[in-house]
Design a protein around this nucleic acid. Sequence first.
DNA 1: TCAATATATGAGCATATGTTCATATATTGA
DNA 2: TCAATATATGAACATATGCTCATATATTGA
Lengths: 111, 111
Amino acid sequence: MNKDFKKDENFFLNKHPLDEETLFLVSQTFKALSDPTRIRILNLLCIAEHSVNELAEKLDLGQSTVSHQLRFLKQLRLVKYRRAGTTLYYSKDDDHIMNLLNQAIEHATHN
Amino acid sequence: MNKDFKKDENFFLNKHPLDEETLFLVSQTFKALSDPTRIRILNLLCIAEHSVNELAEKLDLGQSTVSHQLRFLKQLRLVKYRRAGTTLYYSKDDDHIMNLLNQAIEHATHN
DNA sequence: TCAATATATGAGCATATGTTCATATATTGA
DNA sequence: TCAATATATGAACATATGCTCATATATTGA
């Protein structure tokens, strides 16, 4: 299996046309990655876990804004959290999607 | 370089924090992939070039709807077209992003 | 040149989205 | 138990989005 084939491996494996459920999940996943605020949050969580306030401060966003977006990301299982007292530390929970994000960032910076 | 490092290669290469321009381009690119209609269009263009009417018929969409979405995808250089008479044949124009889409589809079908 | 065909475009509309504000909830230490 | 701290939540708002309709534009063959 040469490199070019490997690169398009998923194309050959994927179904055509896409069923409703897959379509919805894929669109939701990309929707999560389509907002600058969420991208910035995920980009930080890519480095290390952060509390809600840490994210809000580092990104200069309201606490409520961050919390709302984290709920969105959590519901898609892109992030998770652990509790330490009253503080919730959020971290990434889907390496594959994080990898997609990083690929897109890399692609964007070189085009 | 082992496989695990290779997988997160982009993470280490990408800048933190992201600059405004990169952020915008990445979000726009994912926005393109975040709508079911556009995903279905790209999924067909992944197989072969199609005219606007062919896409509209295959996907049971209005001609105007398809045309509007193709303009969106064209402006991001995700698709291109060639003219043959009055017919415009659209095809994919960014293999990297197409690959991201196929990865996400593959990911969605196995989770 | 003109009708036929294919596509593009702009306005209008309903719905979705992201932020903010105010407030609710939860945990901890005193 | 209570105040302090951290986070979650819901409503309201402005803006963005996607589709439809009507119409404009472009190309071709007669």
